[in-house]
Design a protein around this nucleic acid. Structure first.
Lengths: 346, 346
DNA sequence: CCAGTTCGTTACATCGTTGTAAACCAGATA
DNA sequence: TATCTGGTTTACAACGATGTAACGAACTGG
């Protein structure tokens, strides 16, 4: 059975193609009688509009792309969930690209491989530089998620959280609990690693503020932000640094670190407190449950979709900068006594 | 700057539209000189073909949809990763739909909302019945992932694993370790819950085979397969059933159960062994690390994509049934003594 | 030197939809 | 009866790319 077209429906209903189109699109001036006859024909053939033709005509496809490093990372999977929901509310479909945090792949994504198929791009870059961005031709609107790229003013809308403040608060919490040898896991040696740098900055600010001496040997670099990297970094820290707390730049690092600690018989939080960042589901069911910085992911997704929508409807003002609030979620991994509930910050 | 069309390139290069098209598509009969001139014009305007127009013309879009219950679930996130990669190898783009395991949404997905935009559908259903499937019009090829739907022969290609055998092996492992009060978490009360039923069957077979009496009070029903459900079910089991092992129908259930066990001071695996299903990343970094059934997710994805490709290139034979192998991964949660490495089955 | 082949290029129609503008057909008004 | 009005319907031309068939030009061979 071939897919029916407007023409087929029109013939069956005994009207013109355009009238069927009008019915499909709820154009007001169609008599009830005609509308009913057309509706019946549509139902009989179970006609569905051809979206390719529609978008060719309209110059819009109703599809937006979401480019993230890796859906394997629960943070991005959760973010994707929210993005898909927010897009759905606008009738958009989401198409997902995985960049693996690879600069080459990220370049391909912004250079618009699927130009013309997507109306807009939500992009969470890892490795891209400001220069890569500058070379982009601005045909498809793009909203950046997560970290800003490049130091200067970028022409792109951006949604993120205040990483410095969040990291600072997280670290301060550890200091307030009396910890003095607070380690950090997550700095990266790569040229660009904006997020890591900001979280490091917050960490350092907090140490200074709390009067805790900063010990460089307590800052553990990693290649990537996965569980294995966290586990391995923690191992190194235990061998050399004797930390009594560790602030991990994301939750998967923290879960990896937690694994190492428990495996090596360190009591958490008694001997070493652990603090993560992202508030992924796993952290809530780890043992001990993981204290973490909880960005409002749903709001990040919603804001990004809204910004994109504005651009799509012709908004051309200067780039918006949205800073989404975050909470600190205090759980067992930093809680010796079972005090104090979550606190909302920012 | 407006997006250039073939026409613009043609004018700049001083040739006809079709010649440019021929260059773009590597049509052989174009002189080197012309080809070079056109290539230069394409580069200068940074022309990109309009995919909507192309798919209108070709009747193909190069986009396939992957419909899963929920990307939040790491199993589906990991599966999606593999699907995207496999699709990429064929030059396809993947568009993701989340059904929430909701029958209404699943019906919408198979009824082809985005018909004409997607060339094919990879569908991992949860709530759908054979009847829903029967009513589908077969315009867009579909491959089912995970459980077969309906008892009879479905006309759709299907990729899955041998759930009964896998669950049986997992349960047997617990019995072989001397456990006699082996609980199961994951049966669902909903009308359709094929996967759960199959895993229950494997569990029951194993008990019978091992000569362990089946105690209905050790079978804990859940509403969904999330961490919270596992935690809560485990709590009920501890209150009433005194299990010495628990086989969870997926890893998130198992991680939830693990959380409850540790929180209530049960030693794992000493007092209660825990076995999961899916081999999600989290399980490898839980403490204790989670023993689990490890389906070959990459192969599932690859097979599904291959089947779809065959249908798309005109294959019309009867439905294929692909059973992908799985391994048992024995980790700390069932390992009292540190014996025995992973074993490959099926 | 002309018919028959190539080769490179082109005009045209087409994919399915929708915006535009014009045609149509009541019924109301002059 | 002729004109106007307003709602309803229609023909036609796009949107951008590509398959088809046909074209002229440069060859080949008899």
């Amino acid at each position: 059975m071939v897919r029916p077209r407007l023409k087929d429906v029109a013939e069956l209903a005994g009207v013109s193609i355009k009238t069927v189109s009008n019915v499909v699109n709820d154009y007001p001036h169609v008599s009830d009688e005609t509308r009913a006859r057309v509706a019946a024909a549509i139902a009989e053939l179970s006609y569905r509009p051809n979206l390719s033709a529609r978008s060719l005509r309209a110059g819009r496809s109703g599809v937006v792309a979401l480019a993230v490093p890796d859906l394997d990372n629960p943070y991005f999977a959760e973010l994707a969930t929210h993005v898909i929901e927010a897009a759905d509310r606008r009738g958009w479909t989401v198409l997902i690209d995985q960049t693996q945090g690879d600069r080459t792949k990220e370049r391909v994504v912004i250079s618009g491989i699927r130009d013309h198929l997507i109306d807009g791009l939500l992009f969470s870059p890892l490795a891209l530089t400001g220069k890569d961005l500058a070379g982009r031709d601005e045909r498809t609107p793009m909203v950046l998620l997560g970290e800003r790229i490049g130091m200067g003013r970028s022409p792109y809308d951006h949604v993120g959280i205040d990483n410095v403040a969040a990291a600072r608060a997280a670290t301060l919490h550890l200091a307030e609990r009396g910890r003095r040898r607070i380690a950090a896991i997550g700095v990266q040696r790569t040229a660009v690693a904006a997020t890591g740098r900001l979280r490091l900055k917050g960490y350092q600010q907090a140490l200074a503020e709390a009067g805790v001496p900063a010990d460089p040997s307590l800052v553990a670099p990693v290649a990537r932000w996965g569980r294995a990297d966290g586990a391995e970094a923690m191992s190194r820290l235990l061998d050399s640094g004797a930390p009594d707390a560790v602030f991990c730049f994301n939750d998967t690092l923290a879960l990896g670190a937690l694994r190492t600690l428990l495996k090596r018989g360190c009591e958490v939080p008694g001997e070493v407190m652990v603090m993560g960042f992202d508030d992924i589901q796993d952290g809530r069911f780890a043992t001990p449950t993981l204290s973490t910085v909880a960005p409002d992911k749903a709001l990040i997704a919603q804001s990004a979709v809204d910004l994109l929508a504005e651009r799509l409807s012709g908004g051309t003002g200067k780039a918006h900068e949205v800073c989404v609030p975050h909470r600190l979620a205090f759980r067992e991994s930093t809680d010796v006594l079972g005090e104090e509930p979550s606190r909302t910050l920012n």
